[in-house]
């Protein structure tokens, strides 16, 4: 966002892009269709199912080029334009091809104060690409994210719309990237809800026993 305030330019999407997914692959299996129709049946109008159907499509095709959005719209029976509007609204829907692992590094308030930008820049340096870019080997895309709702364990990042990695520090980032290179995606660790805190001895982490850093929260190198 910081860059956007200084350079507030909004680009046009390509209005006539080349099709990237060939027609013969551009189909849902009968199970997928069934699944989508079940979702459709859960809502009073079919457009209620658009988000889950887009999600399913993104998992299948790894991203959502226009032809996939069109396929989803046709499958649930809503106008293509509506599905396209929804897909562009959410940054978690990838409109272009990304790396195998998308690292969403939070740089919103809490994370920023606790060193979110340090983490972002550390990863950028380490992988040799800027945010918004994908490494040459196609393994990683780095992105800057707004608050992902885990401020309690700031700074943090999210891996490909999935697991959170909390309380980032350099060592943790090193270990994470190594693990991801080996194809090991960390397990999802949730954030404890306030009402469960007592049970957890005042901790907000389900994995508190395995996390050293929580006891001594990481402090940004620039904040001391």
């Amino acid at each position: 966002m910081g860059d956007f305030i200084k350079h507030p330019f909004v680009d046009m999407p390509d209005r006539n892009p080349e099709q990237v997914i060939p027609n013969d692959q551009l189909v849902f299996t009968s199970e997928e269709k069934k699944q989508i129709q079940t979702w459709v049946s859960h809502y009073p109008t079919a457009d209620g199912a658009v988000m889950r159907a887009l999600w399913l499509a993104q998992e299948k095709f790894s991203f959502l080029p226009p032809e996939v959005i069109k396929l989803v719209a046709a499958e649930i029976g809503i106008p293509y334009a509506n599905a396209y509007g929804v897909a562009t609204f959410y940054t978690q829907y990838f409109k272009e091809k990304k790396g195998k692992h998308v690292l969403d590094v939070c740089t919103c308030f809490s994370c920023q104060l606790c060193g979110g930008y340090d983490m972002l820049h550390y990863i950028e340096n380490k992988l040799g690409v800027h945010k918004g870019e994908t490494t040459k080997d196609g393994l990683f895309t780095i992105q800057e994210a707004e608050c992902l709702g885990a401020c309690g364990s700031a700074p943090m990042l999210q891996i490909t719309n999935g697991p959170f990695v909390h309380n980032l520090n350099k060592d943790k980032v090193d270990a994470l990237l190594d693990a991801l290179r080996e194809g090991k995606v960390p397990a999802f660790t949730s954030v404890t809800l306030p009402q469960d805190e007592d049970e957890m001895g005042g901790n907000r982490r389900t994995d508190v026993s395995s996390v050293e850093s929580y006891i001594v929260p990481p402090i940004s190198e620039t904040v001391s």
């Binding site: 507030p8 999407p13 209005r15 293509y80 334009a81 396209y84 509007g85 562009t88 609204f89 959410y90």
Partner: peptide
């Protein structure tokens, strides 16, 4: 005709046709 939609979000949004339309 369903040919228009608002794309993007927040300060970036504006009306547009979906690609190819």
């Amino acid at each position: 005709s369903h040919q228009l939609t608002i794309i993007e979000r927040g300060v970036r949004n504006y009306p547009m046709t979906p690609p190819g339309v």
